[in-house]
């Protein structure tokens, strides 16, 4: 068996320059030709030997380091766009083909819609519902981003709801700057200008922070952070925190100046498929400061603990 292989090698050798074969024979069994590079090629005077950009192995000693720094192409390389095919197939045909390919490669847009929280909130007394949706259409660095959040008590209708339309521009590998408007569509009608930052912070925190300026001149801010902790490939624990800040009291929106609201929650979801995951969780909300007083005045509890059941889905 082995012998026929060597016959083959022998036949190969017949048509090879003998030097090449000799060198090969020297490697037989080593499988590492580079280690047996001929010393005849080593140039001890070569100033670059062992100092080049690839000086990490003995292999460089018998090969030239090549040019060490980048230089522009010579004028003979020509200039202008690549249009060789125009001469053969016609300028119009190729322009049409390029147009068709444009938008398919690289910066093409995608659509994404997500319900991060879509849930029932259960507590003693009144049960409520909540949605937290967002979606975008656009290319990797420039998108139209829509968001909607809202909540209400079962049987009493929507209490609080907003829609945001944002232009989202990548300003960093992991961060998008978002500019746009927010319209509160339940409760006192309010329009806000929005400046936000959304992205992925170190340690994989998903962060959405926004500053709102209402048409009445009130300044508020909201910071949301989430973390995904994979327990298995499908079971995921998601801690979540939300902080609402305000520069002033806004009594008609039950907002007090300073820290107005703190929300801490944790949700455990099971991804039946990546896009569809039911979850259960618990969430604690504290309204503090004047905001808490506004709520107490209306007979509401400024501190609530909710058990949540919902689905997270996206497409």
């Amino acid at each position: 068996m082995k012998s026929s292989f060597f016959i083959g090698i022998g036949l190969t050798a017949l048509i090879l320059p003998s030097a090449a074969f000799a060198q090969h024979a020297g490697h037989e069994g080593h499988g590492e030709p580079t280690e047996t590079a001929s010393p005849a090629h080593v140039n001890a005077d070569d100033p670059h030997a062992g100092h080049g950009s690839m000086d990490h192995s003995a292999m460089d000693e018998d090969v030239s380091p090549g040019p060490l720094s980048e230089t522009p192409a010579p004028p003979e390389a020509g200039s202008g766009p690549p249009r060789a095919a125009d001469q053969i197939w016609g300028t119009d045909m190729m322009a049409h083909a390029r147009h068709k390919e444009h938008g398919k490669h690289g910066n093409f847009p995608v659509l994404w819609v997500q319900a991060d929280r879509f849930e029932a909130q259960l507590r003693q007394g009144n049960n409520s519902f909540l949605w937290d949706l967002q979606g975008y259409y656009g290319n990797p660095t420039s998108k139209l981003w829509l968001k909607s959040e809202g909540e209400g008590e079962f049987g009493e209708g929507v209490e609080d709801a907003e829609i945001q339309a944002l232009w989202s521009k990548a300003v960093d590998p992991f961060w998008d700057l978002q500019l746009g408007v927010r319209q509160d569509v339940a409760g006192p009608s309010t329009t806000h200008a929005v400046v936000g930052l959304q992205g992925l912070a170190p340690y994989m925190f998903e962060v959405d922070a926004a500053l709102f300026l209402s048409h009445r001149g009130d300044v508020t801010a909201r910071i949301e952070g989430e973390l995904e902790q994979r327990i298995t490939q499908r079971l995921i624990l998601q801690p979540r925190a939300e902080l609402v800040l305000s520069a002033q009291d806004v009594p008609q929106l039950d907002i007090g100046s300073g820290i107005d609201k703190v929300e801490l929650g944790v949700r455990l979801r099971y991804e039946i498929i990546r896009e569809f995951a039911p979850y259960v969780g618990v969430e604690q909300t504290w309204h503090v400061g004047n905001g808490a007083d506004f709520l107490r005045a209306k007979g509401k509890d400024p501190s609530t603990t909710n058990y949540v059941v919902g689905i997270r889905f996206w497409f």
Partner: peptide
């Protein structure tokens, strides 16, 4: 990123 309109070969 490449687009076939890339004019800098």
């Amino acid at each position: 990123m490449f687009t076939s309109l890339d004019d800098e070969p």
